[in-house]
Design a protein around this nucleic acid. Structure first.
Lengths: 216, 216
DNA sequence: GTCTATACTTGGATAGAC
DNA sequence: GTCTATCCAAGTATAGAC
């Protein structure tokens, strides 16, 4: 609301675009590299190459800057996921695409930002609700994506899709946390391969089984 | 090593048992209630009803106390899980038992301690390895438990058990984090119910299918 | 073993010069 | 918009009295 106002024209950036953006990027990098506990105004500002006071000038508080960082990565990744998922033809292909993008995420650290914010929310009053509101779109996205592939198959009757979407998002987060603990990247990689195989099986299963299994 | 030494007899507690234990319990409660970021020596000591300096006298550092807290909950819960899992006869019953104990965990906050420690490890140098070493037993436990029920079924050939164990632990963590964010306890509860149903289906599937599916 | 007192550090946040 | 300077709160850790 206060942002964007001032003495400049509408279409032109009021010079906000420079350090403001650099702070957001620096916050993302800091969350990935030093975690929520290490993401102080001073550390972030140093990485952004500016003064610590600017964090409060632009965002009012460190927590707000961190939320802006989460918004930024969320938006970037959501675009990427939407685009990539659109190219998948069946459930098996979807799993393959999801695995590829997930590897991108691990590399770029976008899921790391999310999990750090979730973790940090426990010790920062009021942050939990804000973070929760930013996760819901991901569960929704996962749900609609799943429905597109699964709703017409027997699995659509067998498994509550909303639960499956929730579980998938939770699994992503859990794998991320465990992966960033030690050097067990092999475990995550192995799991991705397994998931790809399983989805191939499920696709075959869905195609072979009758439209309704009568189960449940 | 330094603990237990001093002027007292072997079988007798050197009065260590009092505040030492109270500090560990207070650390557990603090991790659950205030998160890793809120678990300072001062806050924990206040909850334990003693002085802040005793944290450093007994444990040397806050991080060490937190690790002791993790060890304590881990040991308690491992006992409980082992005992409960032993009563399960098939995969479906196992899922039911797991769901029950998981609810206990959510209530008592034992998984919360684990996830907070994982999250906090990102911003405390050297903590990651310690926490990782304390998670491995849980993956091992999950793996051997799974094998006991699944190894002789077609699923044993279809799914790499180690991956499945890793995924289950990751899922537990992810669900915990999402649950403690807002008041989405309903989502976790719904997921537990779904899992119970699914495992029933899988049990039936395993019984009906031939010993080897020839898949993979 | 436990407490008080204290040294030292870091972090959030604001005021005011430029 | 950006910087310097500063205040204040909170945390880790140690020394020393009891």
């Amino acid at each position: 609301m206060a942002k964007g106002g001032g003495s400049s024209r509408v279409g032109k950036r009021p010079a906000k675009g420079d350090t403001y953006r650099r702070l957001v990027d620096a916050a993302i990098e800091t969350l990935c590299h030093d975690g929520f506990g290490g993401a102080s105004a001073r550390v972030i500002a140093r990485r952004a190459g500016c003064n610590q006071a600017l964090v409060f000038y632009h965002f009012g508080s460190v927590a707000n800057l961190l939320l802006a960082a989460l918004d930024e990565t969320s938006a970037r990744r959501m675009d990427r996921y939407r685009g990539a998922v659109a190219t998948a033809g069946n459930l098996s292909a979807l799993a393959g695409v999801a695995a590829d993008i997930y590897r991108e995420d691990l590399d770029a650290g976008h899921i790391t930002v999310l999990s750090e914010m979730i973790a940090g929310a426990s010790s920062t009053p009021g942050l939990g609700e804000e973070v929760a509101a930013r996760i819901e779109p991901w569960i929704d996205f996962t749900e609609t994506t799943l429905r597109r592939f699964v709703d017409s198959t027997p699995m659509g009757q067998l498994v509550p899709i909303r639960d499956a979407a929730f579980a998938i998002v939770a699994l992503y987060l859990g794998v991320e946390m465990l992966t960033h603990l030690g050097d067990e990247c092999t475990a995550a990689e192995s799991l991705l391969a397994t998931t790809a195989q399983l989805s191939t099986f499920l696709t075959a299963f869905s195609a072979a089984a009758p439209t309704s299994t009568g189960f449940r």
